[in-house]
Amino acid sequence: MKKEILTKEPPIDLETLEREIASFNRKLSSGDLIAILQKTQDAYGYLPRGGLEFISRETSIPLARIFGVATFYAQFSFIPKGKYTIRVCTGTACHVRGAGQVVEELERNLGIKEGDTTKDLKFTLQSVACLGTCALGPIVVVGSSVKSGASCCDTPFGHKVALGDKFYGQVAPEKVEEILENYREA
């Protein structure tokens, strides 16, 4: 998997990351690395280089190793994402029900390719292998790229966790515009 890395990046506020690291309430070890990276990505919507350098200093894990781990997993991104990330499931079940056409329609509608972000930084389009809602394919999931407290929402069970993702099931290409409408205004 190829990953793009920013050469120049906007300044970031490290306090958020400091708080996230403090929330572990213990000395961090190398086994916590993926969890820290997940929290960083949730907080900023991507992994800013400055943040990774900060993690390296705090945990004494070499920056090279942090990059090695971060580039390995599909969840992590090194470039800022749009306000909303649109994930289209292209798992087998969704695939046989026409997820490919849904991706094409989203690409056409947003004027970007899968993996890219719109110029107005509103939407990032991603395809993912499987979201485990195979019975209702094709599935499209839309959610905030930054999962801070503000974007918390109720899960189906009513507990507050940073989910904020909305699942759309049995999406036909002609439904795409309808889904996007919900996010264009906000």
Partner: peptide
């Protein structure tokens, strides 16, 4: 709980262990 980070190969037991140890899931 350890959350995976999106790698199919981590279902393989030795890769899964590497991932829990905070490494590349190989």
């Amino acid at each position: 709980i350890k959350k995976g980070a999106g790698a199919f190969v981590c279902g393989e037991e030795t890769a899964l262990i590497a991932s829990i140890e905070g490494k590349r899931g190989m």
